[in-house]
Computed example of a mutant assay.
Amino acid sequence: MFDQTLLAPISSFLKCETPDEWVSEAIKPANLSIILRDHMLCELKAAQSAMFLIRKYAVDKESGVRLTEWVKPYEEYAYKRIGGLESLRGKSNVTKQVTVREGCSYGQELVDKMVLLIKEELHHFYQVMEIMKNKGVPYELIEAGRYAKGLLKHVKTFEPDALVDKLIIGAFIEARSCERFAKLAPHLDEDLSKFYVSLLRSEARHYQDYLSLAELISGKEISERVNFFAEIEAELILTADEDFKFHSGKPIK
């Protein structure tokens, strides 16, 4: 169904597989709405996180405003129900010209990788919107689960370590997304299965981009910090979680 070699590095990067209990819950028809709505919002949050990193660390003020305007229409739909498929069509393809902040040695590398990621995540957001419309799944905003917050609360408070931690966390979120798409794909209808398989390659690249940026910016060995977050991430995935979401832990029966 898909290239298993894509998953080999991800399987070795993650400390655990998604539990069968989560997969069993996720493929229930009654939970399709939660999976799709949460997935769509996860794509937006990924774009927002990348935009935040560029704005905070790599570009001038004017460029930051341009990036904010790029993401804003998607935020307005997600949080205020303003707009829709017609108003968002093609907006992810806009290439935003940004100016790297003077003196930022890693700025261009961060901008290049994160702008591409934003573009792809916003396109995926739109694709999930289309799937929801085709399947008659109404959109309603849902609250975020514990997963990302459970990782981010361990970010160091000083730079550049804080940025390195955020990039490592980004790598784990992308890698887990990729792993879960692969877990779900064989159990879904043909359209949704093909869509999730189509996402595997970009998600796998995103996790590698985050890791390479973390290594570049740290300027030192990051394996100890990667292992630290790997343990936390695995605990969030393997422990009981009463709030079922795309990145949640073991469902409570």
Rank of each mutant, 00 (worst) to 15 (best):
G90H: 00
V71P: 10
V115H: 03
D3W: 13
P251H: 08
F181T: 08
N227K: 05
E179M: 10
S11N: 11
I34D: 01
I222P: 00
S33M: 03
S212R: 02
E233A: 04
K72V: 15
L122D: 01
I118L: 08
E102S: 13
A26T: 12
L53I: 15
G64S: 04
D165C: 10
V137P: 00
K183M: 15
D243T: 13
Q127L: 14
L36D: 10
L110N: 04
L213I: 09
K72W: 14
G103T: 07
I118F: 07
Y147H: 13
K96W: 09
R101E: 06
E75H: 09
S212H: 03
S212Y: 04
I169G: 04
L216M: 02
L67P: 11
M132Q: 04
N227D: 10
L184I: 15
F246A: 08
A47E: 07
D20V: 08
S202M: 09
D60H: 07
A144N: 01
H124I: 14
K183A: 15
E62A: 14
S218E: 01
I34L: 10
V98N: 04
K194F: 04
V164C: 07
I232E: 01
W22H: 05
A47Y: 11
V65D: 06
S87V: 13
K183F: 15
K153V: 05
I34T: 12
K153D: 08
G136D: 03
S63V: 14
E102T: 12
Y77N: 01
S212D: 11
I10Q: 06
E203N: 02
Y77V: 11
E43Y: 08
G84W: 12
L85D: 08
E109R: 02
S193C: 04
L200S: 10
Y126K: 00
D209A: 08
V155I: 05
D189L: 14
Q108I: 07
K245Y: 10
I173D: 06
A230E: 02
L53C: 13
T5H: 06
S212V: 12
Y57S: 13
V137N: 00
L199R: 03
L67F: 12
V128L: 07
V164I: 14
E62T: 13
M129A: 11
A47D: 06
Q4E: 15
D209I: 09
L116G: 11
